[in-house]
Write a protein that binds this DNA or RNA. Sequence first.
DNA 1: CTTCACCTCATGGATTTCCATGAGGTGCGG
DNA 2: CCGCACCTCATGGAAATCCATGAGGTGAAG
Lengths: 215, 215
Amino acid sequence: MTTDDHIIFIVDDDERIREALSELLASHGMRAIAFGSAGDYVSADKPDVPACLILDVELPDINGLDLQRQIAAGEHPPIVFITGHGDIPSSVRAIKHGAVDFLTKPFSNTDLMAAIEAAIAQDREERSERADVDVLRQRYLDLTPREREVLPLVVSGLLNKQAAAELGISEVTLEIHRRNVMHKMAAASLADLVRLAERLEIPITHSRRTGGSGA
Amino acid sequence: MTTDDHIIFIVDDDERIREALSELLASHGMRAIAFGSAGDYVSADKPDVPACLILDVELPDINGLDLQRQIAAGEHPPIVFITGHGDIPSSVRAIKHGAVDFLTKPFSNTDLMAAIEAAIAQDREERSERADVDVLRQRYLDLTPREREVLPLVVSGLLNKQAAAELGISEVTLEIHRRNVMHKMAAASLADLVRLAERLEIPITHSRRTGGSGA
DNA sequence: CTTCACCTCATGGATTTCCATGAGGTGCGG
DNA sequence: CCGCACCTCATGGAAATCCATGAGGTGAAG
């Protein structure tokens, strides 16, 4: 399944390069799709598997670096830049913005393959992480408005009593919301809920004082 | 206090460059210390304030990039590389390893100053973060061996009863350890303790199952 | 041998959480 | 107008946590 389990996108305006790369990748048992322009790549229907984008800096429509910035807004595969006329500021910018590598032609097959492997591995990681967080985010969306108010109070460490007071409702009602939150978020314990909330970047709104007014 | 609140280290074997940079920085109200070699920099006594390291790639003793890798093991200020004969692979490697920028001579004062500002700001961030975590780490070191065994079980979400069973001790004893942990770690609540443990990268050893064998 | 830190445990009560059952009110879409 | 989702609340008991007091054992350092 080496072939189906990931894919390499090639964006280069030079037909010969596209073919050469395609063949090279095929010889390594990798599936590849080549595009002649940034626009073709962006508008194409791309399979949803771990991938790597081999991107030429000089393209007919827009600059490769600009394309990088454009797609940076959403999800996109790690980029390996290739270029015939690279300069240092471009390479710095590319790497700073997350590119896996920046290769100048002529580059060795070894270097390219290493970069691709790294990119695929990275994408696999990122996808896995994204998938996890997406599940959480979906659960969070299943919460009712009130439950979304209760969650931050609970993970702040407030007692039910305190959280209830904060919302101006009875402790009983808050307990019910709290339990619903635990169920809907599929948290096995409060500790778990706290970690889920962290990953969802739910802010801590209040923090319980150890020695309060009571007792 | 612009002068004392941060410092710039310059490492370049060219005396003229060192002087020119020192003057430039002085004119911007920044304190700078210059070194003629990597060895001088490493062995020097450096003030403990937010800093930036302006590092020439070509040095008499060791390569700037190698120095970067060497000091990467410990704490060190963000690096801004400068070079007269830079190449793309070097710049890629430098940035990948965390350098703030990689400037080729001649570079504009504006570019350099921007890089330095960014580096200082970054160091300020990192130092603040490190200081926070150091406090936590110190508290963790104050824990007794047994308490260090209890902590991961507690933040895993185990009930006292379960954690006690895990350690083969009575629930009462575990409660005492647990309370001591809370006190020593200065955690205001369990939620707090979970977050502290996260920052200390304390692994979750067990995770409580919602509907267990009990009841 | 004494001191000290550490680990161990019990009793017992106050507080909090967990959970089920039962029930009333509001607002919106069908 | 009915159903449905949502928010609200009470009672009441089981379980768990929080906390204080009191106390015994071990091993290492002084």
